[in-house]
Nucleic acid binder design. Structure first.
Lengths: 154, 154
DNA sequence: TATTGTTATACTCTATAACTATA
DNA sequence: TATAGTTATAGAGTATAACAATA
């Protein structure tokens, strides 16, 4: 067949102004990232939010749920569900905070520490796939630029 | 006030390895972007997916639903819901495609054209807020780098 | 045989509102 | 009065599986 048609059997479409929009690019990237993350960690039934929670609890033993909510931009009620999930799996524990008895101090269990040790290399592999087409400078610039997009982080 | 304490009454937490992860940064940015987008376009009850669909249909009159699904990384069944929503609002129309009678050719209505003309400046404002702390070079680099993260786009 | 659109269905993630206990 | 955690509930967005029509 002559003419400008491409090899793909799918229509070649015009993305209009979308490719120039940060919002569009971030959204599309996030869909791809989430798929790769969950596929790569499927054996551990792990999502980015659950993993991030484990990392934050490890880095801040006794972290309070409200602080976790602020850190991950989640509602307090959503954090209850997240901690419930991890607690049911035996990966974290809630204890009443000594300095403020309204709060829970969340800590990793030994099992939680072990899982996190296993997960980190998998996440490193996942990240390596994401940035495989970026050089070191592009990668650093990307992280820095993204960080400036949500300046409401404390 | 002396000392390194900050003004915030909230705990200052250690983000551990999260800030270095592309996946984390993209996710946090996306949450912030989605909130700003929907707040800014609340009067039009518009989401990024609905807006993106209008843009793609405008740029590709007669676009087929399956192509839209590929372009936005959505399932075909999800696209049915998206087009239903826009059709019920009178912004797009489905017609049977002449070249392939399995497919629908989706087009903007006049109302859809008008709405899109109104929305574009609002999205431009939204985008300007997102990148307000980035210079032009950072902005260009960010778009390019994000585009390389989901290379499965056709 | 494969693809398109559709339907029915269910799942995940998230938020809102109201409650309680503490501060 | 305000905040932390919880519960019940609901909504948005998404996908899976099965189907009819068409290629």
């Amino acid at each position: 067949m002559a003419g400008p048609e491409r090899n793909s059997r799918h229509a070649r479409i015009d993305y209009g102004l979308l490719p120039g929009l940060i919002g569009y690019q971030v959204r599309q990237a996030q869909i791809a990232i989430f798929r790769d993350f969950t596929a790569n960690l499927a054996d551990h039934d792990m999502t980015p939010t659950l993993f991030g929670t484990l990392v934050l609890v490890e880095a801040n033993p006794g972290l309070k749920q409200a602080d976790l909510a602020r850190a991950l931009q989640l509602d307090r009620s959503t954090v209850v569900t997240v901690i419930d999930t991890l607690e049911h799996r035996g990966l974290v524990e809630r204890k009443r905070a000594v300095d403020d008895r309204r709060s829970n101090a969340v800590t990793l269990t030994n099992a939680g520490e072990r899982i996190l040790t296993m997960l980190k290399p998998l996440v490193t592999d996942h990240e390596a796939r994401l940035v495989k087409d970026l050089d070191a400078g592009e990668r650093t610039a990307l992280v820095a630029a993204l960080g400036k997009i949500f300046p409401d982080r404390r």
